[in-house]
Design a protein around this nucleic acid. Sequence first.
DNA 1: GAGCATACCTACTCGTGCGTAGGGTTACGC
DNA 2: GCGTAACCCTACGCACGAGTAGGTATGCTC
Lengths: 216, 216
Amino acid sequence: MLARVSSTPAFKRLPRAVREQQMLDAAVKVFSRRGFHAASMDEIADDAGISKPMVYAYLGTKEELFVACLHREGTRMMQAIAGAAAPDLPADERLWRGLRAFFGFVGAHRDGWAVLYRQARGEQPFAGELAAMRARMVEVVAGMLDHALRAEGREVAEAELEVVAYALVGATESLADWLADHAEADPEKTATRMMNVAWVGAAQLLQGTTWRPPAA
Amino acid sequence: MLARVSSTPAFKRLPRAVREQQMLDAAVKVFSRRGFHAASMDEIADDAGISKPMVYAYLGTKEELFVACLHREGTRMMQAIAGAAAPDLPADERLWRGLRAFFGFVGAHRDGWAVLYRQARGEQPFAGELAAMRARMVEVVAGMLDHALRAEGREVAEAELEVVAYALVGATESLADWLADHAEADPEKTATRMMNVAWVGAAQLLQGTTWRPPAA
DNA sequence: GAGCATACCTACTCGTGCGTAGGGTTACGC
DNA sequence: GCGTAACCCTACGCACGAGTAGGTATGCTC
């Protein structure tokens, strides 16, 4: 029953704030490797170098823990992007910096990205949270496009704009996935490629050239 | 202990092939609603109007069952696309028909799409299967772009082409997700929008206009 | 240095859900 | 009409993992 003879405790006592971050680190790692359901609280606790009840005491149930991961990683990503893309720059410059920051983040936080996009998406309880974040990004991209077009005296229906923005965000996520899976890939180069597809392609399109389905 | 008084069996005896399809239908439905882990074999069996041991007898373990779902839905989708996009058509026509068939399929099989993309992606055991399918699509799209460009006398490095194709496939999946979530959305219209982004945008880009990162 | 909050543990309970044992009934060939 | 194979069931065993009970040690305040 006696836990440990009171001589030299093998573990260090650390302040709550520190342990919480360690736990989140471990949780993100394990969730991203195993997936939400397959991950066990025991493994997470173990990986954090702590016992399970501590995790429950600090971060709550498994679902709450996952949400906390989602929140931390999502906030970090958003901050990385927002910090890079100052709103007073011209649209193409903003887009470029935003993309570079984004791919940089994904390259440096592959685990976080996996949690965010590969896991959260499949599990109902969290899909909403994710969708909201994505909606914000679509809005930002649509805003950029709109701004750039107005500057050239053109105007496009909002719905149309949003769909294009949606497609661009999807393309970006897709390349991010690719990046996360290829350790040797260069974030900067990937960002350049995406910039090509997004800026040159979409701007061209919205400037006037339109494809229409054949009569048949 | 006696199962049922031998008078009128409440269930029909059906040949294996039929029951298997019913089970798969139920499995796709339940997996897409709950996710792989949260789905229970009991619920699937129940939904199929059959008892659990039958599912094990015909389709094997839960993992095997999921793979079977993946296989059926994936094959159906590929066939729908391949059947529409005959290889002797011009590239833009092929792309258009392929996209229309794809979005038509997603619109008609929202459950299947959810299983395929939202679930399979998160769970390690199936991610590979999915990645292979996606790789085939990327290859096809890259082939189309390449063909169209050669016809106009231009040539592009294969790696570059593949990344663009990857982005386009990602954009398409993204719109498919959007379509699956919006019951009121029109597949045909969505296909037209994607066609705009893909054909006009990408072709334009690959024809010469290129964006390059600023010196800073 | 007594009291109290905080950090931390081991060792459970208990539900849930996969997979199976063991057996019953209908159709079909011969 | 009789075996035998194909269908189909109810009712479990059993492992795994979420969450908790109950207790110990350490540092900080006064």
